[in-house]
């Protein structure tokens, strides 16, 4: 497993907002097809890490290597990279001026230059996958949170990404809608898509993850397989964090 080249490798990533050093040293590798879950206390830097990977924030130091190439090198084709790395947001962020189908078609059409027919076929397939086919004409504000998040997932996978990032995809949802989104994510996991998921749903993490990282104070404090991380974490901080959740 360690012999293959990682699809993504973070090396000593740092991020500073003004005087505030938010990420001190984030390093980890993720292999093709792996699912990694990131847990940790609020303000620890989980979102910032994801946003750096997707370049919504510009890292202040360190490397982000995609297939072995540092994307922070000048001259790297950033828009091409972004198209290959998808993101699902906590607040869904569907385009409110477009309906469900258009939300899923616009990326492939504009960025991947697909024909409308092709983009539509892909979008319809993915909407079916997330159980949103009946709603293709609806505008985002006419949908429930869970429905919006499922469309957001369909939108992300319509780009046929190599890596998909989730930032607390169920945190903004009412409890009864959490499951419908997790179910869709499990379906995706089964397809072999590489994913990095920030979540507080530990049962879900245990079920789908290949590895779990505990990020706190801007560093990867501890990482390992779900069995080790959730049952026998080494660090006091990790134990304390988990106790809080299991209580």
């Amino acid at each position: 497993m360690t012999t293959t080249k990682p699809i993504l490798s973070l090396q000593h990533l740092q991020k500073q907002f003004g005087q505030h050093q938010v990420l001190e040293d984030i390093s980890f590798d993720i292999q093709q097809g792996e699912i990694m879950t990131i847990i940790g206390p609020s303000g620890g830097g989980k979102s910032t890490t994801l946003r750096c990977i997707n370049l919504l924030e510009k890292p202040t130091a360190g490397k982000i290597c995609f297939h072995g190439e540092n994307i922070l090198d000048p001259g790297y084709q950033l828009n091409r990279y972004r198209a290959k790395v998808g993101m699902v947001f906590q607040q869904f962020n569907l385009f409110i001026n477009k309906n469900v189908l258009e939300n899923c078609m616009i990326g492939p059409e504009l960025v991947l230059k697909k024909s409308p027919e092709e983009a539509k076929a892909t979008a319809l397939g993915n909407l079916k996958l997330v159980g949103m086919s009946p709603y293709i004409d609806a505008k985002p504000n006419q949908l429930s949170g869970g429905q919006q998040q499922r469309v957001a997932i369909a939108r992300a996978i319509s780009m046929n990404p190599e890596l998909l990032l989730f930032d607390e995809p169920t945190s903004a949802l009412d409890p009864e809608m959490v499951n419908e989104v997790l179910t869709v994510m499990k379906k995706l996991a089964a397809t072999g898509l590489t994913m990095i998921i920030v979540t507080h749903e530990l049962a879900f993490a245990k079920e789908v993850s290949d590895q779990i990282a505990f990020i706190s104070g801007g560093v990867v404090a501890e990482a390992g397989t779900p069995a080790v991380m959730l049952e026998h974490p080494k660090l006091e901080a990790t134990q304390k964090f988990l106790r809080h959740f299991n209580a």
Partner: peptide, 22 residues
């Protein structure tokens, strides 16, 4: 909303695509 810009960026849209379409 900032989220509209970010979602468009995450799809890999250029600045002008973000502007005109979203």
């Amino acid at each position: 909303p900032q989220g509209q810009f970010e979602a468009a960026s995450a799809l890999g849209m250029s600045h002008s695509q973000k502007m005109w379409h979203i």
